[in-house]
Amino acid sequence: MVDQERLEFLRQKAQLVRKHIVQMVTEANSGHPGGSLSAADLLTALYFQVMRINPEKPDWPERDRFILSKGHASPVLYAVLAERGYFPVEELSTFRKINSRLQGHPDMKKLPGVEMSTGSLGQGLSVANGMALAGKLDNLDYRVYVLLGDGEIEEGQVWEAAMTSAHYKLDNLIAVVDYNGLQIDGPVSEVMNPGPLQEKWRAFGWHVFTIDGHDFKEILATLEAAREIKGKPVMIIANTIKGKGVSFMENKVEWHGTVPSKEQFEQAISDLS
């Protein structure tokens, strides 16, 4: 269990990550702030506390892997990778610009630390399964983490992959759904209700946890508990708030892929300070 000091460090780090997100999207005049902000605490927990990684050796065979299956949330991944030392923080200002390593959606060929190129939704869990299978074949004890969007799981391939993870008993795989409840056209429950999530993933043979995706204590305790589950894959349904941390973005569907104005940017930074 981590102490209060560490929890405070993680909270502050996540706020810094959120500031980067708002700044990147504003500077690029393009990008997806809402679903990046909702995942900031989850990624901060993974990259700063949980995952066995070494930014000096991004290709280390025994490293834990993270796949951002909801690739449009690239700002949160880039911010965390930069803060973790995979590349200079200053490079965040090149996001979505010509000749940048920080593509609109993550590109593993361009940026160290990106484990998989994503963007076309629904594909990350299959790829994570492949990495987990390879780990078992090679007797390496790394873990594969994958973050899915709640809208994303409307893609049929996710459920094909869900069968595969359970069929091959991939207990070295931990998936997280960023359940912020909103997708581009409205609430997920109205556009194409993917629920009931717990029951579905359980029926597909997964061990399911449901948590508050903004509570570091709960996130860390669950990720720890997840490692003890044997013989089946783990799904963590993380209840989150889209736009979390920025007052005018929270729970607002229009902030899926909208850019703040100058005034809104200042308001956002002040909210996060």
Binding site: N129, G130, L133, A134, Q157, A161, M163
Partner: peptide
């Protein structure tokens, strides 16, 4: 070293990508 993926071609090719990313 053989994985039957069932009747799910999209998942099969995605899984192949993950295996390749891990050096297979």
């Amino acid at each position: 070293r053989f994985f039957n993926m069932g009747i799910a071609e999209g998942d099969m090719l995605g899984t192949a990508a993950g295996l390749a990313a891990a050096g297979k």
